[in-house]
Design a protein around this nucleic acid. Structure first.
Lengths: 131, 131
DNA sequence: TCCCCTATTTATAAATC
DNA sequence: TGATTTATAAATAGGGG
């Protein structure tokens, strides 16, 4: 949105992606807060970075102090009707959930493995320098 | 932000508040979506209007399609889990989550299998009576 | 309610420090 | 890494239909 238009697709360069994440995350939280105040509504925002770090915003209105838990609870009751899908699609849903969690776990593991390897290389190079 | 600056406080005039709600709600959802795509992260947004109507956005990333239920689940687990544990126990935690989901799925499947068997017996007995 | 218009304000991409 | 700058893209307040 500045110094050049961009297309909305995954930013490939990791460092730029990190910078943009920081900026736009702040922007999003600010917008969420403004919406909540200006229009006196409840807003909840949850963001998970690719490394699994959690960022959140939960509004309070003039009438109630809604933390994220209350907003989630309200969301879930609002959705209860929807939960009554037929058995087969229910099972398929949970199978999907399991797959997603497994994939995420894999990502976390890869992430930490590479971090560990980098550390190891660092220590080894230090050792080499001491010799 | 246009035709005059505004201060961020509850808009008193109901009709303006409604209009602003509609505009900014769209803006917020769009920003959430852009953040999710650009930075390849999970984003969930929940908004309740003052009349209790629900508006939501839940992102998908390149790796996973996370609906709001998954995001909420992850949020709740992250809170319980303290999140500030070391990588290894974090991974162990998620492994536990996967196991739990798998067990749930198993129970669901067993349940429906037994229901199916009961149905089958019922039909069979009907068939027998016809003979 | 929703769309259009457009003058302004904001958000922010890219560069620089 | 983070803070600051700045040129530009986006969002939007206010008004009209």
């Amino acid at each position: 949105m500045a110094r050049g238009k961009i297309v909305i697709r995954r930013i490939e360069k990791m460092s730029s992606r990190q910078v943009t994440f920081s900026k736009r995350r702040h922007g999003l939280m600010k917008k969420a807060h403004e919406l909540a105040i200006l229009c006196d509504v409840q807003v909840g925002v949850i963001v998970f970075s690719s490394t699994g770090r959690l960022y959140e915003y939960a509004s309070s209105t003039t009438t109630t102090t809604m933390g994220m838990p209350s907003i989630i609870h309200k969301y879930q009751s609002a959705q209860e009707n929807h939960q009554l899908l037929n058995p087969v699609s229910q099972i398929m849903f949970w199978e999907g959930e399991v797959r997603k969690l497994q994939q995420e776990m894999q990502i976390l593991q890869d992430h930490h493995r590479s971090k560990f390897l980098i550390q190891l290389q660092y220590y080894l190079s230090n050792l080499n320098q001491l010799e």
